[in-house]
């Protein structure tokens, strides 16, 4: 597994551009390469290495659930230790569940659910509760102050 501290300055720069400044052009990697004085082939090859190592999860679009009219909510439940895997299995099978974590709290299982409408989300939660035999609390956002999942990579000391 390739960790950040093994990455070259060039790779870090590529990661920054890929996250914050991906060109909306027909040949984005050529344009990135041009800015950095590299070959397009080299940029693509470096990105391939970082994808294969797992550092880059994917390259694509990050859509905004709210703007698309979708409803999303953070859910939590209290699951007895011995039932965690069974309950998690049921929750993870549900379409629209994108994150699911065991957390160190009385509410020990936390997941996110996104659905086309609030009604659909509530129905899904109802059936998850009855299928898994658990009680789920739903905590939708009232106000969003920040959603930004990109990481500044250029400063090696910051890591």
């Amino acid at each position: 597994m390739k960790e950040m501290n093994e990455l070259s300055r060039t790779d870090r720069e590529i990661l920054n551009v890929l996250q914050a400044d991906f060109p909306l052009t027909s040949q984005p990697y050529r344009d990135i390469a041009e800015k950095m004085n590299l070959d397009e082939e080299e940029v693509i090859a470096r990105i391939r290495v970082m994808k294969n190592s797992g550092l880059i999860r994917r390259i694509g679009g990050i859509m905004d659930a709210r703007s698309l009219g979708f409803y999303s909510t953070l859910c939590a439940c209290k699951v007895p230790e011995e039932r965690i895997d069974a309950v998690a299995g049921i929750i993870n099978r549900q379409k629209g569940v994108t994150h699911n974590y065991i957390r160190d709290h009385e509410f020990n299982l936390w997941f996110t659910l996104t659905a086309p409408t609030k009604d659909e989300a509530m129905q899904i939660l109802q059936s998850l509760q009855s299928d898994a035999g658990i009680e789920v609390i739903s905590m939708p956002a009232k106000q969003v102050y920040k959603i930004k999942v990109s990481f500044e990579m250029s400063d090696p000391d910051a890591l």
């Binding site: 990661l15 890929l18 996250q19 914050a20 400044d21 991906f22 909306l24 550092l55 880059i56 999860r57 994917r58 390259i59 694509g60 679009g61 990050i62 859509m63 905004d64 703007s67 959603i147 999942v149 990109s150 990481f151």
Partner: peptide, 8 residues
């Protein structure tokens, strides 16, 4: 489309 690019 909130952002286009890499997810790490």
């Amino acid at each position: 489309l909130r952002r286009m690019g890499a997810v790490l």
